[in-house]
């Protein structure tokens, strides 16, 4: 809660060459980015929350997207880690292994403004153009910029 106005995602939270054995591994690698950036205080605690959520219902989405997410006490600020995974990692989605993995970390008691940003992100994922833009981004910075630009709640 120290810096509530930090952007949802930055270049250091993007892994453009994610290679993971399974969804657990993918979530762990992305969560490690959040942990390193100081956005997640307890890596294992947060991953437990993500797993608990994933166990309720697979978060694989149409368009080959994996969307692990959790509201967790171990999250300091609403954050997004993005993994682009050319080899694909199975999230139980209907049309194949996920090429795009979004790890959403929301603080347990965050206010509605923050939630609105995450809501806007979730809405964007429905749009194929948004997914294509991310997949075609040349580097981590442009992935982060694309997300910030698109999710900006006008």
């Amino acid at each position: 809660m120290s810096e509530p106005n930090r952007p949802l995602v930055t270049a250091e939270l993007v892994d453009t060459g994610l290679s993971a054995s399974d969804r657990d591994d993918a979530a762990r690698q992305l969560a490690a980015l959040l942990h390193k950036a100081g956005r997640v205080s307890d890596l294992d605690g947060f991953l437990d929350d993500v797993r608990a959520r994933e166990a309720q219902m697979a978060t694989g989405m149409p368009g080959r997207v994996g969307l692990p997410h959790a509201r967790s006490a171990h999250v300091a600020v609403p954050s997004l880690a993005v993994g682009i995974c050319p080899g694909g990692v199975d999230f139980g989605g209907p049309d194949g292994p996920a090429r795009l993995v979004f790890l959403i970390a929301a603080p347990a008691g965050s206010d509605e403004d923050h939630m609105r940003i995450l809501a806007a992100l979730a809405r964007k994922l429905i749009h194929a153009e948004f997914r294509e833009a991310l997949l075609e981004s040349p580097d981590a910075r442009s992935v982060a910029d694309t997300v910030i630009r698109e999710v900006d709640v006008a």
């Binding site: 309720q56 219902m57 978060t59 969307l67 509201r71 995450l118 806007a120 979730a122 809405r123 429905i126």
Partner: peptide
């Protein structure tokens, strides 16, 4: 949806689109 941050809004957007 249980968490209220992802599926809820994706479903809403999908329906609207």
């Amino acid at each position: 949806c249980p968490t209220g941050i992802a599926h809820t809004y994706m479903a809403a957007e999908a329906l609207e689109q």
